[in-house]
Amino acid sequence: MEIKDVESLADLARIELTEEEKRGLLSDMDSILGYVKQIEEVKVEDTKPEYKVYNVWREDVAEPREFSKELITGQFPDSQDGFLKVKKIL
């Protein structure tokens, strides 16, 4: 792994890093990936992960939930007329 790999991962993860932080993360990543690499040696043959995925349904009836609109909207960094306001994206 090289600095540019850390930069591209940080870019994907939307994290701003300083040069020093990048260097620190590079050596940490090398050490962690060096450790987890040992699973390359494990023989899994044709073991397929059995995802026990199933849908969790409920009847289509309204159930009261205790949400506080004021608590939610009060934490918006920016808002207008009770709506969350964000910078334009186009």
């Binding site: 850390v6 991962l9 940080a10 994907l12 993860a13 939307r14 994290i15 701003e16 890093l17 932080e21 620190g24 993360l25 940490d28 990543m29 962690i32 990936l33």
Partner: peptide, 17 residues
Amino acid sequence: KGAGFGKEVRRRILIGA
């Protein structure tokens, strides 16, 4: 995210990515 996440959290986010 740069200001809000500490060292270990960043590590795990990057490893995960």
